[in-house]
Design a protein around this nucleic acid. Structure first.
Lengths: 358, 358
DNA sequence: CGCAAGTACTTTACCGGTACAGATGACACG
DNA sequence: CGTGTCATCTGTACCGGTAAAGTACTTGCG
């Protein structure tokens, strides 16, 4: 039972393969009568339509766009911020008839999706810009959109104003009178296991991209104000409590407020605090980041920095679609690739207040 | 700036195209010295590696597997049950080096992903089995796995014991002494807008597949017991309240218990009930389905029917991978495609109790 | 009536690779 | 020294389509 191809149908009807191809792809190129007969024969022979791969090869486009994530897939679906982003991308892509292909950065047994899977373009999302996978995508000269990545003038970028948002949140705490503040941020897995909290600016620990911007924003305000900052390095998806956070909250000179990289981490801080009998915000102010939809329904409405995650996804998808379209028409230089920066705004809710002893 | 291909490198080094191909794909076929030179030249010329589409065409495999969903993408990422399933699929797929392609059922401007995107196999997930998209996938003779679909002996299926689980939940209510029970289930969008609640078995409304099984399970127990059942048709993702549910709960002869198609719907019922001043479970017992992880942290721990969604995803992915592997080795008849049925178990929590007036 | 302009189909070439069957030369062995 | 084997590289065909140019047969029209 060999494969049914255009040739099968052509032979069956005694016409040329090209005519059969036209019956499917360019109906105006043949008489409607013959077309009808061809389609009928195709149906009868069980021809599934032109082979996608063959068509992609000759047309030069595959009908799929990728989303690369350096983090494992699990992340994209368990973390509701990531899921919302990808969902928005998918939603924006949907009416174009493109499929969305999730690419991992890993290379297993010689196969690396970012190098070996056929796509028309990709969004680089929660990825290490230095990873080989990103390199492969670039080398393929695919239309790309970087999201939450360090700006790269050669590639379209969509970022939010992490730094500005972080600055606003730090200012908010300063205005309340806080001077002893914990900064809780993920760090590259480089240093020792769950590196303990350090006090003072520790420039030696590498902070991955969007976190580094948020940290910079915090410090923009805190440093000039002479605030007493302490760092806690906390990897992003904390499952069951954080010893590092607990240690800081339990210390005698504990901070009166915490600025957190994300709402997920902020939630963790709130939980650790209440486990220690600390009240939020009376004993500890907590600020998150993202304005994650899941946190909206919490007992403790979180002061946070809002970013429009779905909007970011839609913009990223739209930018990619534009880039692909430009690429197809071989527009020589479509201007500089767009460098977008979406706003991030402080949302004050119930988790922040002036420190107890003012 | 024309494309860099194998030929470019071959010309540049004065070797045959085939040798360059071998340098990438079959290193044992040439001297390591020449290979080194070829790779160096490739690197220098910016060759991104063998063209995925061309390779896919000749090899007959693309390195991507699809997930078809008839529902729009948004669903897959906002509904946490669907997200968890896809996440588990992705996780299981990841170590194989395959990419995961999300396919929509829609056909826009002549392009239909299920027909036109190159994949090696697919999981048919929350789809209408009768949709054209499913037909295309079948016609392509791709390795397929149906999940939560009506069993099809020709295709590998993964289902859970919806009917058994539903039966257990109905029995649970009967044992508590409930006799007036609302059944809340999605229905095909066929009848009028938000079709009102009917009382008694209404066989004319088409119920889509997994819901029909659950309904059958409920009725298996309720009918022989002579319970007084009323139907409420509620489409799955209810955003802001449900008039239909409210109407039923507000009626003079309101049910003492509700069996719900999903936890998401059960949550809706709980909310509508408390909006009406009804206490759960004192005034109304509510049973969900899925044991959705999001519901675990609710104020009102929900009695529900547990299914292992992640497990279902992993099994589906593993089944698909097996099928693809078998397909590749052209195993003539790999036995009947597996028909799996995963367990569904009642989990009794706080949302059910005996009816107030016993 | 002769020629330009369709219409309907066919031929040829190519997309960018890989499989497979040589071709070539070095080297070992009897 | 003939020849078999191995390692290394090349030539050809083909994967399943499509673009573009070509052929043959109408048809319109001055």
């Amino acid at each position: 039972m060999t494969r049914v191809t255009l040739q099968t149908i052509a032979d069956h009807l005694g016409v040329s393969r090209m005519t059969v191809s036209n019956a499917f792809s360019r109906p105006d190129q043949l008489s409607s009568e013959l077309r009808r007969r061809i389609l009928a024969a195709a149906d009868q022979l069980g021809y599934p339509g032109p082979h996608p791969t063959a068509r992609a090869l000759v047309r030069g486009s595959t009908g799929a766009v990728g989303v690369l994530s350096t983090d494992p897939f699990r992340f994209a679906f368990s973390d509701d911020v990531a899921a919302r982003f990808i969902g928005a991308v998918a939603e924006e892509i949907e009416p174009t008839g493109l499929a969305l292909t999730l690419l991992t950065a890993a290379e297993v047994s010689g196969v690396a999706p970012a190098r070996d899977v056929a796509i028309d373009g990709a969004i680089v999302y929660s990825s290490d810009a230095a990873s080989p996978a990103v390199g492969w995508l670039r080398r393929r000269r695919l239309p790309l959109v970087f999201v939450d990545q360090p700006p790269d003038s050669g590639i379209a970028c969509v970022n939010i104003d992490d730094r500005g948002g972080a600055r606003a949140s730090a200012r908010h705490l300063l205005e309340f009178g806080h001077r002893r503040i914990a900064l809780i941020t993920p760090a590259a897995p480089h240093p020792g296991p769950s590196s303990g909290p350090g006090v003072g600016a520790d420039a030696t620990v590498p902070i991955p991209f969007p976190a580094s911007e948020r940290l910079a924003g915090w410090m923009d305000e805190l440093a000039p104000a002479g605030a007493d900052v302490g760092f806690v390095f906390q990897q992003h998806p904390p499952d069951h409590g954080s010893p590092a956070i607990r240690r800081v909250l339990a210390s005698s000179l504990r901070p009166t407020a915490a600025l957190c990289y994300s709402d997920a981490i902020a939630l963790l801080v709130v939980r650790e605090a209440s486990a220690l009998g600390l009240r939020v915000p009376e004993d500890l102010s907590v600020v998150g980041f993202d304005n994650s939809p899941l946190m909206q329904h919490l007992e403790m409405p979180l002061t946070t920095v809002h970013q429009d995650i779905a909007g970011k996804g839609r913009v990223a998808a739209a930018t990619l679609i534009d880039a692909i379209r430009a690429y197809r028409t071989e527009a020589p230089v479509p201007g500089r690739p767009p460098q977008l920066r979406l706003p991030a705004e402080l949302v004050v809710r119930a988790s922040t207040a002036p420190p107890a002893a003012a």
